[in-house]
Design a protein around this nucleic acid. Structure first.
Lengths: 135, 135
DNA sequence: CATTAATTTAAGAATCATTATCAAAACACA
DNA sequence: TGTGTTTTGATAATGATTCTTAAATTAATG
């Protein structure tokens, strides 16, 4: 099956790449709708599917109810805040030797770029710490 | 709200701990049903909720359509096979200095025990390798 | 043990994210 | 431009999970 170039597909990729966050399908739908008011939510879902299958974008299954999507396909990680749900990027530079260690320890398996850690985002981490001091 | 001790709750925890795999709610329901034929799926869901909220079990959001659950709450990781969907355990001993590195790199954030890696399980990894040689 | 209040259950309805359906529109390509 | 393929929009269907309710079970208290 050949992939056609459609306006919808192009706008979806374009808007996703512009976003710094990791939107759900319906969040991206709201953004895309500003440029294509007639687009349907199903079209957004369908395109996020084919685009992630072809590797143009990332589909993030990070334990939330909804899938999230990421226009940045470079190797990086995610920290999902279990307090507020925010998804922060963790770039390879933040990881020290961790990547090298992982590669050697899991040699033979293919370790993919989209790995999620569960914890607290910076904002919630500081609030949690503050609350702990109060009690 | 106080947690009552019910037969259903006890059997659910018991059967989950006995399983080496990481079942979905309905998979565990089928197992539990052999001991409690009258139990309902909703009861399984409800108890998996309160049990994971209280930390007695783990709820794994590992990018699959359904949530998975783990009776082993000790610190360990998961490798989700993107070929067959299998969920393998990766124990701390398999991780070398990775944990120490992560702790120092993400200091101040609380890094939780249930972290999932995406890649191939051993079986699928060897088949992928074999297929690659053939082509 | 008996009474009363709180919690939990089973069954089924409801919700909501995602997928599927299908006729019409857009696209690819000769 | 014509023709076969792919995609779209609208909507229905699916399926995992949550909610609802009356009845049953459990906890707390005398």
């Amino acid at each position: 099956m050949k992939l056609s170039k459609t306006v919808q597909r192009k706008v979806i990729v374009d808007e996703l790449r512009k976003l710094k966050c990791h939107p759900t399908a319906d969040e991206l739908y709201e953004v895309v709708r500003r440029r294509l008011p007639r687009i349907s939510l199903g079209t957004v879902y369908r395109n996020l599917d084919v685009l992630s299958a072809s590797g143009e974008i990332l589909r993030l299954g990070i334990g939330k109810k909804q899938m999230c999507f990421d226009g940045d396909t470079s190797r990086h990680y995610h920290l999902v805040c279990r307090c507020c749900g925010a998804v922060d990027d963790i770039m390879p530079g933040d990881m020290g030797n961790v990547e090298k260690e992982l590669d050697s320890k899991l040699a033979g398996r293919i370790l993919e770029a989209s790995v999620s850690f569960s914890g607290y985002c910076e904002k919630c981490a500081s609030r949690v710490k503050r609350d702990a001091q109060l009690s």
